[in-house]
Amino acid sequence: MALDTAPELNSLGFAKPPSETRVVVAMSGGVDSSVVAAKLAEEGYDVVGVTLQLYDHGAALAKKGACCAGIDIHDARRVAEEMNFPHYVLDYENIFQDAVIDEFADSYLAGATPVPCIRCNERVKFKDLLETAKDLDADCMATGHYIQRKMGATGPELHCAADANRDQSYFLFSTTPEQLAFLRFPLGHLPSKDATRELAAQYGLAVADKPDSQDICFVPNGNYASVIEKLRPGAAEPGEIVHADGRVLGTHEGVIHYTIGQRRGLGIGGLSEPLYVVKLDVDAKQVIVGPKELLATRRVPVREINWLGEGKMTDKAEHHISVKVRSTRPPREAILRPISETEAEVELLSAEEGISPGQACVFYETESSRILGGGWIWRGY
């Protein structure tokens, strides 16, 4: 009697040939997503490339170092032609404006330091674009993000990329279990970005040496204040620069020109001690500065939590985890104390400096590469 055997899975985890597996690839026009599309096409998958036009085509074309810009749409289309799969450009300008840019402007005016790339993944790419992929009868959607999807005991889990220098887990913590079931990240296991570029050269892609995108796509040269002033004319109001001890040290042209932890460009010279922005009081129109030690904090209130761990976050009174409070900093050991299913307090075992409302606080398992979710830091200290 023959024994039943489980059907062999293809590289995307489906029990059927690649040719019968349709995958929508989110193509930004950069080398990463181009390699994903080319790799899957080479493996024989039914690939459909989709690129989002997120803001005005003409203005985007003139902006160097951005993703989803005019030249990037051209590059994505060229890759699709080279690898012989269909490619579509979707106009998401209004969606992007409503879901990402408007909140970015309002958050800055409220004294926060937002991370629009996370909102773009959460509200545009992994929501509207993912639904479009399903409408195209895709089995899954693949992206060029450096992160890993691994199967665990209870389903797919989100894990850090093999290359810690390229890991994008901070920007993907809000990916839900339902989205994770449909998503694939073919680059997450690669040892380095050089390996990605080698694949691009192997496939003969014209974007093999294309530079990585820099800064936020709709913020030229990292000048946030100029963008806010265009989006919300007249919203920036002058006020006082005040020392934490109450001394008025000078004036400013708008709170939007400052961020928590900033030291340079404060406009208050002639002082013997180095001063940092320690708080932004929007209501009083004050930029509050003080010595570096005032930036340190151990307690971080977090809300809008997306939990990716086992069971419910509230199943335990405490979770001993590691957290990132900024994308450029390594995870630090912490204790997570749930308040509700979407709100918690994080206690850092060692103090961090420059924690700002509007930034993300991302949760990691301490003894593995697994991401347990995260949330948004929501008030000053």
Results as ranks from 00 to 15, higher is better:
residue 2 A to N: 05
residue 361 C to E: 09
residue 62 A to V: 01
residue 150 K to W: 01
residue 38 A to Y: 01
residue 257 H to E: 12
residue 210 K to N: 13
residue 295 L to W: 01
residue 24 V to R: 01
residue 304 E to H: 15
residue 157 E to V: 02
residue 286 Q to R: 15
residue 7 P to I: 02
residue 200 A to L: 05
residue 112 A to P: 00
residue 73 I to N: 07
residue 162 A to D: 02
residue 122 E to D: 14
residue 231 L to P: 05
residue 62 A to F: 01
residue 340 S to G: 07
residue 232 R to M: 09
residue 234 G to Q: 04
residue 56 D to W: 00
residue 181 A to P: 00
residue 160 C to R: 15
residue 366 T to H: 08
residue 17 P to D: 10
residue 277 V to F: 04
residue 354 G to I: 02
residue 275 L to F: 07
residue 304 E to G: 12
residue 221 N to I: 00
residue 204 G to T: 05
residue 224 Y to W: 00
residue 206 A to C: 01
residue 118 I to E: 15
residue 23 V to Y: 09
residue 328 T to P: 00
residue 98 D to V: 11
residue 152 G to W: 02
residue 43 E to C: 06
residue 23 V to I: 14
residue 31 V to W: 01
residue 14 F to C: 13
residue 313 M to N: 09
residue 45 Y to H: 08
residue 344 A to H: 07
residue 40 L to Q: 10
residue 279 K to N: 13
residue 328 T to A: 15
residue 147 I to K: 02
residue 241 I to A: 09
residue 363 F to E: 07
residue 321 I to S: 11
residue 249 L to E: 07
residue 177 P to I: 12
residue 18 P to D: 03
residue 56 D to I: 02
residue 70 G to Q: 05
residue 145 H to T: 06
residue 130 L to E: 07
residue 64 K to D: 13
residue 146 Y to P: 08
residue 45 Y to A: 09
residue 75 D to T: 06
residue 37 A to N: 03
residue 379 R to K: 14
residue 31 V to S: 09
residue 308 L to G: 05
residue 349 L to E: 12
residue 68 C to P: 03
residue 252 H to K: 13
residue 322 S to R: 15
residue 145 H to F: 08
residue 367 E to A: 14
residue 326 R to Q: 13
residue 377 I to C: 11
residue 148 Q to M: 12
residue 87 H to G: 10
residue 49 G to D: 10
residue 286 Q to V: 01
residue 64 K to I: 01
residue 151 M to I: 12
residue 65 G to M: 03
residue 263 R to K: 14
residue 31 V to N: 07
residue 137 D to Y: 03
residue 259 T to K: 15
residue 141 M to T: 02
residue 197 R to W: 01
residue 111 G to Y: 03
residue 328 T to G: 11
residue 29 G to C: 10
residue 74 H to F: 13
residue 317 A to E: 07
residue 319 H to W: 15
residue 73 I to D: 02
residue 66 A to Q: 08
residue 232 R to D: 02
residue 297 T to S: 15
